[in-house]
């Protein structure tokens, strides 16, 4: 039981981040900064954070450094570019009469250690050109690749799937 991260006590910082995220969602959904709304939001966020309790360990991997928001923005920018590229790529495949596919499963190792970091990486890979995360097992990601770059350097190509995101996620997650 003790080896399962879900049962370890969450660090205080995880509660702070959990509370902040809940409050931010509240502010966005109510769309106002009136004092009464903020007070109600703070109360709800407090209850939600307390109810989540030790499950917030998930947020423990976040880095709270002054540069972290900058890295987050850099990651988001890269992510949006990749998401757009992935849609062009998919549109080309879907619309070409010959249906150019050469799918297969590949395995990628990740250096990210936190659960949240790995989840974010898996998510990002799913939304980038031609790849879909099928399973995450410890530090190995099983990926369905729609076109295995036909016979070129497979190992380097496989590493490249994760490398771009991993390097950017590392700025704000361990």
């Amino acid at each position: 039981m003790t080896s399962n991260p879900a049962f370890r006590a969450a660090p205080a910082r995880a509660y702070v981040i959990g509370f902040g995220t809940c409050l931010l969602a509240w502010i966005l959904l109510t769309g106002t900064l009136a004092a009464s709304e903020l007070a109600a939001g703070a109360l709800v966020a407090l209850v939600a954070t307390a109810a989540a309790g030790s499950r917030l360990t998930l947020l423990g991997g976040l880095r709270l450094s002054p540069a972290a928001p900058l890295h987050l923005v850099r990651y988001l920018g890269y992510f949006l570019v990749q998401l757009t590229l992935s849609n062009f790529d998919m549109a080309r495949r879907i619309l070409s009469p010959s249906l150019p596919l050469d799918p297969g499963m590949v395995e990628v190792h990740t250096g990210l250690r936190s659960e949240l970091g790995r989840m974010l990486l898996a998510n990002s890979i799913t939304l980038t050109p031609g790849t879909l995360t099928v399973d995450v097992d410890d530090d190995r990601l099983l990926i369905h690749w729609i076109d295995r770059a036909g016979g070129t350097d497979m190992e380097a190509a496989t590493r490249a799937i994760a490398a771009g995101f991993e390097q950017r996620i590392r700025g704000f997650l361990s």
Partner: peptide
């Protein structure tokens, strides 16, 4: 798309 994995890919991204 020919199989379930490729279908998931096409549906998710677009």
């Amino acid at each position: 798309m020919p199989d379930v994995y490729n279908r998931i890919q096409a549906a998710t991204k677009a």
